[in-house]
């Protein structure tokens, strides 16, 4: 298994699940693919179909309306799959904390492996989060 996990760590394909963000985190995620940060160095590739994904990048708060859909996307992904929550929205509901339709327990919707706080988080922080995930996979 260790050999397989090292292969997996070197080839994480990410799929972008937009919960209900203000869209700023999503723009920051796109920064990762630009020449300055270039996460393809680590074998990370942005894929368009959830069937090809290894990592789900979830942004935004989980509200009543989006939570079932996020759960469904998680179920559609082939296992093993990892979830990285991007932004303070996902980890601490951020500026939407008094909103009436927030799902209180997000971990009951999908299991989340890594949180990246920040509003929006810097691309460096996201790279660090993914590097942590790679570290966990490598043991």
């Amino acid at each position: 298994m260790g050999w397989y996990k090292r292969r997996l760590a070197k080839s994480l394909w990410v799929f972008h699940v937009s919960g209900s963000p203000c869209n700023n985190c999503d723009i920051e995620i796109l920064d990762l693919l630009t020449p300055k940060y270039d996460v393809e160095r680590f074998g990370i590739k942005l894929v368009g179909s959830v069937r090809h994904a290894d990592v789900l990048l979830v942004t935004g708060v989980f509200n009543q309306k989006i939570a079932p859909r996020i759960k469904r996307i998680y179920e559609q992904a082939p296992k093993p799959i990892f979830v990285v929550a991007i932004g303070t929205c996902t980890s601490g509901t951020c500026c939407f904390k008094d909103s009436y339709n927030i799902v209180p327990d997000r971990e009951a919707v999908i299991p989340i492996d890594v949180y990246v706080p920040g509003c929006p988080p810097k691309p460096e922080a996201m790279i660090e989060a993914v590097a942590k995930l790679i570290g966990v996979l490598n043991g």
């Binding site: 397989y4 292969r7 070197k10 080839s11 270039d38 393809e40 074998g43 082939p78």
Partner: peptide
């Protein structure tokens, strides 16, 4: 103007895909 993936990248991709779930 990017650096690009390491040499073994496509092999890693292929072996990784072999171990994933088929839906």
């Amino acid at each position: 103007y990017r650096v690009g993936p390491p040499f073994s990248q496509n092999f890693n991709d292929f072996f990784k895909l072999l171990g994933k779930e088929t839906i």
